[in-house]
Write a protein that binds this DNA or RNA. Structure first.
Lengths: 148, 148
DNA sequence: GACCGATCGTTCATTGGTGAACTAACGCCT
DNA sequence: AGGCGTTAGTTCACCAATGAACGATCGGTC
């Protein structure tokens, strides 16, 4: 037809693609992190559990892990199942509360955590490398605006 | 010990938290999109399949769907299983290639696609609302830098 | 001390994704 | 025509996450 009268109405056009670009980039970034820890026999989910355990410096109840991981309890049950099978974590009974089960790091778990965090730090730097200070700052601002 | 000699070495410090902020925000955004289409009996994965089918305007081989979805073929097999159970898609044999199976939109599928895309557009605008033009532009730039 | 509501971990079914192994069919190629 | 490498879809086992249902236990409160 003929040209648009009035405003270009690009309002929606800018936004639409951007959301999915955002998600695709996030997916790619996550894949890079995952790929960095996979060779160590770890996943991001497993490493996160090890990290909370190492951070607390004492065995934590599974519900505490669920809370920090922002996930449901049943997920932690299975994650700890696998970590236990890997020999990185051990379930210990809580003497004060017989409902509670605490996850404790094994020696292998402590080692795996150190290695995993190391690999993670490296790839994190690699990812953020191409961003100069200004880029980083405006990205931070955009994230804050999005996470309303 | 004593203060750092030389450079502040903030280089890593800025980057480290940022990667995970990025991923967390992405997760939150994705959850909002998911929540927008869930009430319609859809998921983002299902809607994407419907979208490719509607876009092509003809039944597509499952491998074509896998390619566009950037996922493995076995995933599409199961996704189409569920979509077929929902009555949104039908499997049709390909007369030219007997190995191939094409996914075809049903009438219900076409309807669901329209509704889903509608809901999606709305929530997309809501998400990008708090970003002014400058924010959007610098976000775009940052994404380009990250998606190396 | 007995009941009752909340909390803790587990189990199960479902969704979504991967990768390996397998069968059927296609296309060459000589 | 026969043989062989490739492609298409499925199946299976696994990882990660959700949500509902359930049994055990803990804390009041009555």
């Amino acid at each position: 037809m003929h040209k648009r009268s009035r405003k270009p109405a690009r309002r929606g056009a800018t936004a639409s693609g951007l959301v999915f670009s955002f998600l695709e980039t996030a997916e790619a970034v996550e894949a890079r992190l995952e790929a960095a820890v996979n060779p160590l026999g770890l996943s991001l989910a497993k490493l996160a559990v090890l990290h909370f355990l190492a951070d607390a410096k004492e065995p934590l109840p599974l519900s505490a892990l669920a809370e920090r991981q922002h996930c449901v309890r049943s997920n932690i049950t299975q994650l700890v199942d696998r970590l236990e099978k890997d020999g990185l974590v051990r379930r210990r009974a809580d003497s004060n509360d017989r409902r509670s089960v605490r996850a404790a790091l094994t020696a292998a778990g402590t080692r795996a955590h150190a290695e995993g965090m190391d690999a993670l730090r490296q790839v994190q730097r690699a990812i953020m490398g191409p961003l100069n200070a200004g880029d980083a700052e405006s990205l931070r601002a955009a994230l804050k605006a999005l996470g309303s």
